[in-house]
Structure formats: C-alpha cells, structure tokens
Amino acid sequence: MVAPAAATHEDAASLRVWHVTKEFASPDGGVTPGALALDDVSLSIAAGELVSIVGPSGCGKSTLLRMLAGLTTPTTGELAIGAEPITAPSAERGLVFQDPNLFPWLTVRRNIEVGLVARGKLREKRAEVDKFMRLVGLEAFANSFPHHLSGGMAQRVSLARALINHPRVLLLDEPLGALDAFTRMRMQDEVLRLWQTHGTTMLFVTHDIDEAIYMSDRIVIMTQRPGKIEQIIPVDLDRPRDRSSQDFLRLRGDILETLHFAGQPMAGNKS
C-alpha cells in the first residue's frame, strides 16, 4: 500500500483518509459476518479547512471521527495528519462529543485545565486557562461544578478544554446536537469565531443540513450500510451566511435531494 505520507500534502494540519474500511466483529464470534461500518472511504482535508459530514445515522460518520482521533483503528486503510500516520490518540487532535463529557468532579476551571495537567504544562501555561475561559465567556463560572451549567455552557467548556491544547485539528461529533434551536445558532457562531481566530482545521459531524451549510467550506455526504462517501459539495458562500438567501436554500435543496437518494440503498425496496 502506498503510504499517505508520500502524498503531496505537506501542511501539518491537513487530514488524509486513505481507503479506510472498518468492520466491527460480530458479537457471536464470526458465525455471522460482522457489520461493515465504513467501506473504502477516502477523504482529504486541507489545513485550516472547516468540513462537515452529514448522513443518516449508522453511516459510520462517528466511527470515522473516532478513527481520526486515534480511539479506533481501521480494519484496512490508513489515516494521517500531515505526514504522520494516526495510530493513537494525541493532544494534536482534539475531540468534542455531543455530550460535553465534562468531569463532574472538577470545577469549570479545572476541567479546562485537564489538557495542560495531563501534559504536565499547567505551570508554564497557566495564563492560557484564563484566556480560554474569557474566550468562551465563562469567567463567572470558574469555580462551579459542571452540573450547574446549562447545555450550551457545558459545551463551551468542552470546546475550551479541547482548544487549550492548541490542537492542529479539532474533531467535533455532533457538538451542538443536544442544544435547543436558539442556543444552537449562537453556538454555531461561537464555533465559527473560534475557528476563525485559531485557524484550526475542523471536521464536524452533524444531522443538521442548515448547520452544515451555514458553517462549512465543504460538505461530505455519506450513505448508510455500508458507510460510503456519496458526494462532496463545496459551499461557495461568503461568511457570515444568510440562512434565508436564495443560494443557501438552493444548496439545501440539492443536499436534501442527494440525501433522499442516498437514503434508499436497496433498489426495488421503494415502499
């Protein structure tokens, strides 16, 4: 196999997915064939790009993100960040889940510090903690425990916690999925602001087509069982984007059509 390292992408913050297949072992130990979560997926994301993945549930988008984070290994194929193959989790690839997953036993401040403490850098980078708490507007809650926070606040802490390591890439798995519509729109702008100020490469999974169009440079549309990339749609709209503009709505229609097509994997099964 040709190593992805040989590719022309030289920027350290680019991501490459190279013919990746992921098969989950069947629970009965191989009597029935395992589930094919991803089937020959290839994708490359440039440094500083904001790319979203949309698709029906079970299309393997979360699995792809976990593999990029290094938490799961592919059955075949390779993944790389810059020129380095991805084999294990690293602070260079931050991951934000739908559930903020804050440590309930730590205050907001200590939660944000986790990355620095884990890497033994708290002493030299203590000032960063204040900076990031200001950045997400949570100075007043520094000493609160996570269960006192609203969903949006908790997710902001989770973003600050991931960003304090200055990751080259930020992977977001439906980060705004659990929020109400208003908080969600505010948080979309917040994530965009963080992306623009830090220039971090971002790859995020979402169910929400409007969110994908509003935020991303490109939209990856995936199909279900097995997970495959159906289409990659570039979004050539100027930011900030108007959710009700003609171009926005036209793009939305295109994507819905593609997804509808993608939602019927088996021919002759049209009910």
Binding site: G70, L71, A91, N101, V114, G115, V117, A118, N165
Partner: peptide, 17 residues
C-alpha cells in the same frame, strides 16, 4: 464511563492520568 477516558486520551493523558 468510557467516554471520560476517551476525552482524557484525546487531551493528551497518559496511563497515570
């Protein structure tokens, strides 16, 4: 919770942490 451990690992935590 496995997700706590996953989060910590993506934040650079080693085994002791």
């Amino acid at each position: 919770r496995a997700s706590y451990l996953d989060v910590a690992r993506t934040l650079g935590a080693g085994r002791a942490y």
